[in-house]
Amino acid sequence: MSSIEKFLAQQPLIVHSALAQLRYLVLSEGIPASSDKTVGRLRCNVWSVLARCSMDSATSDYVLLVRRGPPPSPVYSKIKNDTFRTLNTDARFVARVSEDAITRCLCAFSWAVLDAGDQDSNLSTYVQGMNVLVAPLLYTCPSEPMAFRLFRTLCQGHIPTYLDSSLTGVHNGAKLLDICVKIVDPKLSNFLADNLLTAEIYGIPSILTLSSCTRPLDQVCKLWDFMFAYGFHMNILFIVAQLVIIRVQIMNSRSPMNLLRQFPEFDAEEVIRLGVGFVAKIPSKFYDLLVRHLVDPDLVIE
């Protein structure tokens, strides 16, 4: 039994400090690799604890939403238009997650958003990319209701601005990505700017999906381990890291957009190490923006 499992198994005396210890364990040791099911269950537990997402009555809530069937037709047709191609080139994902499960999750989410109305946020019932965003959760969690609960927590609690009607957070994230690249790697930033490649052009998928659009999915999960622990704003820095890793190829390429359209497969540890290293370079002002752009729809980045 790994130290993370042991740590999770005992009820924490003080949740706040226990969470800090858990984060550190995730950063220092990571979630040990084992069988898909075991690691999935452990990872789901870690994610839910870190995200402060209780799975209490997750199943009954989910089943109630699913029983309502497909959402109104424009939403449902959008969902059905995307579900079948969700990570369909990833054999392991296709083997573990059915299209029906993705459909159910997304439809249940849209029902939940419709039920909430405009009280809380401006969440969209469905936007393209949600299907990819839910993929690592369905891939990891041992049950659909838990994946759905985590997805809902993630969307509503962690990245609400990413999923509003105008994708405010995503566009702010793109601006922040440009800024961070400029701070971290001015030469690469200049090269991209010379080729008119802004983050709006190449970075939106990675920003919106929290890098889950990049293969392989197992590495995405490790990236998510870290982001559940220390915040999804780190995703911007991880995208910078991925750019930096392939910077030579980009700068030598005649058509760098071809490289950036689909980021090459990555190693999560390397990306995390680089990304965390960039934190020190990011001024406090921009780090605040990174944190806030996830939740503050009124944030304006110049």
């Binding site: 009820q11 949740v15 537990n45 604890v49 041992p142």
Partner: peptide, 12 residues
Amino acid sequence: EENKWNRTVGGW
């Protein structure tokens, strides 16, 4: 699975 989750990390 939900029960299993509850047993394992419900204390949190």
